[in-house]
């Protein structure tokens, strides 16, 4: 366990040192996370009073879920392009561990984005978080990140095989932006699309976080959302890790390990 924690810390330290060495990008990235908040704030003034508080949580979480989805594949692709992929594979840490640990820094950095967005909207844009149940919100976030990481690992398997052109990332990207209720209520969708929202796990993750942060729902009150996301983890995490191992095996046979 301590070896695993040391490896996790080494990954975080590596990525933090690299990212923070690009100083302009590091600060612009944080600033950029606030841009959509302003857009939806003014849009909210046009639409109605309840729109913005609900959407600001959607914006914060959608960004986080997209990061969870992309980080795994991106870490593989970056390593392939930089030339460090073979070296990582030649270490005594198995690739499943490497893929699980590689996006940790990104997750932490995006978590700071969420905190900034929520704090900014609360302090300057008067979103009322006075009823927020932080424990429930953290619980929802934790379960959600596990759920979307499972899809992220599947997506990394696609990157290993296809190199570019990732159908899973595209499909789940649509799930996150279009049919999750992140930016607009799913009620406005045509009936033919509503069923996608019903089976879309992103919707439950965002709904759960909203209920925790705006309505103060406790963990037992969010059991439905948590159960749906946990079921997703139970199925997709082992499947993702298995398929990722198979993908690595395939490219080792094909000789396309370092091809990108």
């Amino acid at each position: 366990m301590s070896a695993l924690l040391r490896k996790a810390a080494a990954m975080i330290r590596r990525d933090f040192t690299i990212e923070s060495s690009y100083k302009m990008s590091f600060f612009l990235d944080i600033l950029y996370s606030l841009m959509p908040v302003f857009t939806f704030y003014f849009l909210g003034k046009l639409i109605g009073k309840n729109y913005f508080p609900s959407t600001v949580i959607g914006i914060a979480l959608a960004g986080y879920f997209q990061a969870a989805l992309r980080s795994f594949g991106a870490s593989i692709r970056d390593a392939q392009m930089a030339g460090s992929f073979e070296v990582l594979l030649s270490t005594r840490t198995n690739m499943r561990t490497i893929i699980l640990l590689s996006p940790l820094y990104n997750f932490l950095f995006k978590l700071i984005h969420i905190v900034i967005i929520i704090s900014f909207s609360g302090i300057f844009l008067h979103v009322d978080y006075s009823h927020a149940n932080i424990l429930s919100a953290l619980c929802m976030l934790f379960v959600s990140i596990l759920a979307f990481s499972s899809v992220g690992i599947l997506s990394a398997a696609c990157v290993v095989i296809f190199k570019r052109g990732n159908p899973l990332e595209m499909a789940f990207g649509l799930f996150i932006t279009l049919v999750s209720g992140a930016y607009f209520p799913v009620d406005v969708l045509p009936a033919s699309m509503k069923w996608i929202a019903v089976i879309n796990p992103v919707k439950y993750a965002i709904d759960g976080a909203r209920l925790a942060l705006l309505e103060g729902y406790s963990i037992p009150m969010l059991l439905k959302e948590i159960a749906i996301l946990c079921s997703m983890v139970a199925v997709l995490l082992p499947l993702g890790l298995f398929l990722f191992s198979q993908a690595i095996k395939k490219v080792k046979y094909d000789g396309t390990l370092v091809v990108y």
């Binding site: 070896a3 040391r6 490896k7 080494a10 330290r13 070296v87 990582l88 270490t91 005594r92 490497i98």
Partner: peptide, 8 residues
């Protein structure tokens, strides 16, 4: 240090 950590 990074690669050594991965090498256990």
């Amino acid at each position: 240090e990074f690669f050594g950590t991965l090498d256990n």
